[in-house]
Design a protein around this nucleic acid. Structure first.
Lengths: 147, 147
DNA sequence: CAAATATTGTTGAATTTTCAACAATTGAAG
DNA sequence: CTTCAATTGTTGAAAATTCAACAATATTTG
């Protein structure tokens, strides 16, 4: 509630800043919902990717969950300790480790999914379904052409 | 170069995820540019806010630089050690501490600004000026109605 | 095949962030 | 005025992240 634009500001706010700001806010909201189950957003992303039952290599998972490799390794360590996922060495390429979701992990994912959908719905309500769809499309394009 | 959508996917990708993904990528690019001067993105945000010469309280700065209070305190500690900013107790409210940009900090900000603008220009080129403007507007709306 | 190079994932140390508690100052209520 | 509550910022310990180096396996090249 500090600096709503006082007029059409001559100052250029960078896209990078707006993205960081929006991401921070939305992430904070999602975090608040997931807190009901005590699950950090990063773990939710991992569970969501794995909940289809397929195993993923650490590299693929890191990409999908938006985490660096060492961070993912340690996050998976924690999730293994919590019996949410498990590791299996990939028989086809023994450098790789495949991560699978345990039954416990799948159950948790099932409880988490509606929380995330709830946020999505909440945003669509406050912000408009059309604007949400448009924003999503623009973000997808940006990501695709980000290179 | 892994998972471009194989078709119009029936799976709903959450806005929260797209924002995180886009933010990660854009932030990474900005970071790569700022690395030329060895300055983390968070410090660049702080310098940009302060470079108009006005002092800001820790609270305001934390809001503007998208950082939690304790994180900001420690970041400012580092920047003070690097003589980029300095603290002055607010005479009007002695609970507050005002942060000011030093001359050295201003010079650094002046070297950093074109790097950030360069990224902005690069995005506009690859992604289109129209799409960029539209995305910015949508993000501003989202932030405003995020509550 | 052998050696050199690349890929994949983990580790330990260092850095950074976060959480909870705290100190100092201000504002509000009785 | 005095006490109680709220605001502002910092601190230390704990947790998480990152960086650089490494180990193991796979791939390429001579």
């Amino acid at each position: 509630m500090s600096n709503s634009s006082s007029a059409d500001s001559p100052i250029t706010v960078h896209l990078a800043y707006l993205l960081a700001q929006a991401n921070r806010e939305i992430n904070r909201q999602l975090d608040a919902r997931l807190r009901a189950e005590g699950v950090p957003v990063e773990q939710w992303r991992i569970l969501k990717v794995l909940s289809d039952g397929n195993g993923r290599s650490m590299g693929d998972l890191a990409e999908a969950a938006l985490l660096n490799h060492p961070t993912l390794t340690k996050t998976i360590d924690r999730m293994v300790a919590d019996s949410l996922v498990y590791r299996i060495s990939d028989p086809a390429d023994r450098r790789k480790v495949l991560i699978f979701c345990s039954d416990r992990g799948k159950e948790l994912a099932k409880r988490l999914a509606p929380l995330a959908l709830g946020q999505e719905a909440h945003i669509a309500k406050n912000y408009g379904g059309k604007a949400t769809a448009q924003l999503k499309r623009l973000l997808e394009d940006l990501i695709e052409r980000a290179g």
